[in-house]
Amino acid sequence: MQIEFNLNGQAVSADVEPRTTLADCIRNDFGQTGTHLACEHGVCGACTVLVNGEAVRSCLLLAVQVQNDKVVTIEGLSGDELTPLQAAFRKHHALQCGFCTPGFITTAHALLSHEPDADEDRIRDVLSGNLCRCSGYVPIVEAVLEARSSYRDSGSK
């Protein structure tokens, strides 16, 4: 099936089998491998991307379902510079191997774009669906707490 959507600000099109997940489409058809796949059945959050501004799991979405939608992946969140959220992750050592990080950053970005005043409980609640084997989570929460101020200043990113 022929599909068209917007990927990180660019109009793109692809010819995909209906069974192709959005994650596989982004990675294989467009070579944007920042979106990570681990469980491929919705339990780890590594594949989180934004569709029309909402955080969703790209392994639980078919590419044919995002026809005409706006998809943003980790690649679309920053240019050459780190965003304040990414810089906070670095400062707080919120990653070690980094495999889970794109999923945490996209999720936290969606949260803070909608709720820049999210408190620690809310942040923990929202991040509860993302798994990290390395960091122990505490530094991730600290990084997201710190990044809130940049979302208050600028609205969304």
Partner: peptide, 8 residues
């Protein structure tokens, strides 16, 4: 469920 799942 979790945040991302709740959006769908």
């Amino acid at each position: 469920a979790h945040y991302q799942i709740r959006n769908r």
